Each structure stands twice: as structure tokens, then as C-alpha cells.
Simulated assay, not measured.
Amino acid sequence: MRARIDEIVFDCHDPARLVRFWAELLGGDLVDRSADWSYIDPPGFVRLAFQRVPEGKAAKNRLHLDLDAGDVEEAVALGAVRMGAVVTDEHGRFQVLADPNTSNYQF
């Protein structure tokens, strides 16, 4: 048997807010199935789903998405939050951004 990834699900406090951020960033139609569950099917990628959970985030993420957003300023204008400085090395540069779900991050 070979399984396939059907969707990536993010626990959060506000699924409707996050699905709108990610839909604007990645494209795709958004669906609010309920107040507790929303998702998008970005073009060329697996479904991203957001489910409401009552508890806050307690530790560092064990999974994150590395995206080529093109213009970081556009992502920030959509609500992304800068996390630290721009990193530049011999392989290029990158900026760590968090989605608007900053209530789940511990600084």
C-alpha cells in the first residue's frame, strides 16, 4: 500500500482568519466548512486545512512550510509577521515569517 498526503492540517484559534491569509498568499478558493474548520486547495499543492483548537501553542513547531513568496513585503502586507532578521549566506538569503496566527507563537 502506498499512501498519499491528502491535506496538511494546522491547529489554530481562528480558522476563518488564517484560511483567508493563506488563500490570498497562495491562491485557491477557500471553504469555511464550519466555524471550526476551513480549507483551501492552492493550485499545484495539497489542501491546507485549519481547525480550531482550544489550547494555545506550547512549544516550537516541528513542521513548517518553506515558501518562495517572491516579495516579502507583499506577504507582510497580507499579515505575515517577521521573525528575526534577514539571513544572508553563501547560498542566498531568506526571511522567516509567521502567519497571522501569532497568538500561537511564544516569543
Rank of each mutant, 00 (worst) to 15 (best):
L67G: 07
D66W: 00
R62N: 12
V72T: 11
R33N: 11
R33M: 07
Y105C: 14
K60H: 12
A59V: 11
D14W: 06
E74N: 03
V87Y: 10
R4G: 06
V53C: 12
N104G: 15
F21I: 09
P100I: 03
D89P: 04
A77N: 09
I8C: 13
F94Y: 15
A16R: 13
L65W: 05
V72N: 10
D66M: 02
Q106I: 13
Q51I: 03
A69D: 05
A16I: 11
G92M: 00
D32F: 08
V81I: 15
F10R: 00
F94A: 03
E90C: 00
V9C: 15
Q106R: 15
D6C: 04
E90L: 08
W37R: 11
R20S: 13
Q95S: 01
F45S: 12
P100V: 01
E24Y: 02
L67S: 04
D11H: 11
R52F: 02
E7D: 08
A16Q: 15
P54K: 09
D14A: 14
V31F: 06
R82E: 15
G79N: 02
Q51N: 07
A75P: 07
G70K: 03
E74R: 15
G28W: 11
R82Q: 14
L26T: 04
D89F: 00
T88S: 05
F45E: 02
V76T: 08
E24D: 15
L26N: 07
E73T: 10
R2S: 15
G70Q: 09
N61P: 15
Q51S: 14
G92K: 09
C12F: 06
L26D: 03
P15S: 05
N101Y: 07
V9K: 09
A59R: 13
A80Q: 09
K60R: 15
L30V: 03
G79S: 07
